[in-house]
Amino acid sequence: MIPVKWSEITIHTTNEAIEPISNILHEAGASGVVIEDPRDLIKERDTFYGEIYELNPDDYPEEGVYVKAYLPVNSFLGETVEEIKQAVNNLLLYNIDLGTNKITLSEVHEEEWATAWKKYYKPVKISEKVTIIPTWEEYKPVSSDEIIIELDPGMAFGTGTHPTTVLSIQALERFVSEGDRILDVGSGSGVLSIASVLLGADQVKAFDLDDIAVKSTVINAKLNHVESKIESRQNNLLDNVNEQADLIVSNILAEIIVRFIDEAYACLKPGGTFITSGIIQAKKQEVREELEKNGFEILEVNQMEDWISFIAKKPEAEQVF
């Protein structure tokens, strides 16, 4: 059998652009994404409650980050790379800083890729209760109330250890109550939906415009034995959603969050909580103003590295705008 050849595409960009570029690569058919951020080399590990990676400094850029993905070498490769370049450049329309924005290609064999990329992913405790582990790692809980989430990072959307995800899960841990009904807007891998159920939610509806994300949420929900409580479907934000939820969580770009804050207010029960993450410093004030304009009371503003998360509340007494 002739080994399959893969092309490693490397995009030298910024931390801000990691998630949208990762989504572009997955939509282009990438088999796995690896993030090489030099800040991981000097990061204080207690920020994430434990070790994440086994790191080699030679793999990292001096500034910015490398986002690497793997595409099969076939007759469509050139066209696929051009589509990726165009989609990445289009992020400038959303005022996303692309930094160096240099794209390079190199060839790797399937057997090398199949094992090499796994070295980046280890079990990581990201909050007081929640630990995320890749499916192939053996892990023994260190306490009786520890919540374990299994993910396969090769499917899509990373390992759940990005600061925006960590901020979201830390907020969920504090605000999810037993029996809650939750909406996860822009569900990605489904990690926030899974965490919500394991923290006590009775039902989660997970929405994502990307069909890959919808499938990934379904797969990961089954992996964690919570599929009966998570409904994953393709949907544009909260369009045509007529739910009354106890909590809404959304970990996506600030430019997208501000588009549906009014719908989020309408879909929350009085006293409900809205957790938003994925917000860069430059967009912090814009999101705050939009939340307050639509009637939300801001309970907390949290930060990890360059990322911001808001925890907002719909007042107990309905307000008219």
Rank of each mutant, 00 (worst) to 15 (best):
E316C: 07
E51K: 09
L91A: 03
C267D: 06
K229T: 12
E300Q: 12
A264S: 14
E63R: 09
N235A: 05
T80D: 13
S168G: 11
V34D: 00
I126R: 01
F321D: 11
I147C: 05
D211W: 11
L93H: 12
R39G: 04
N15E: 15
A317F: 15
F175P: 04
D59C: 06
V88N: 10
I311N: 05
N15K: 13
A30S: 11
V191Y: 02
D210H: 06
K222S: 15
Y120M: 08
W136V: 03
Y66S: 01
T164I: 07
Y94E: 14
I257M: 12
V191L: 01
A213C: 09
L55C: 11
W136N: 04
W136P: 09
S309I: 02
P20W: 14
V197C: 07
A17K: 01
K313R: 15
N235W: 02
N23C: 06
L238Q: 02
E263N: 05
T14V: 05
Q234K: 15
L198I: 03
D37E: 06
F207G: 03
L91E: 07
S189D: 06
G160I: 05
L299V: 14
D97P: 08
E27K: 10
H12N: 00
A28H: 03
L183G: 01
R181N: 09
L299D: 12
T100N: 15
Q303Y: 10
K284L: 09
A17S: 14
S31N: 14
V34G: 03
F321W: 15
E227D: 15
E112A: 13
E289T: 08
Y139V: 04
E137Q: 08
L199V: 05
S250Y: 02
E173A: 11
D59R: 01
K43R: 14
Q319A: 14
V67S: 01
E146R: 07
K122F: 01
V124P: 10
V130T: 04
G190N: 08
V124N: 14
G32F: 02
P38L: 15
P153C: 00
T10A: 07
T115M: 11
M1W: 11
K119C: 00
A254S: 13
L25W: 12
Q234P: 00
L199N: 01
G272Q: 00
N56P: 06
G32V: 02
D208H: 11
E36I: 08
E150P: 04
W6T: 03
A116P: 01
I308V: 09
T217E: 07
V204C: 06
E62C: 03
I194F: 02
D152T: 09
Y139C: 07
V320Q: 08
V204N: 10
E82A: 08
A114W: 13
L237Y: 13
P61G: 12
I279P: 00
Q170N: 08
G188C: 10
P3G: 12
C267N: 12
L291W: 13
I96A: 10
F207E: 02
E255W: 09
E16P: 00
V241T: 03
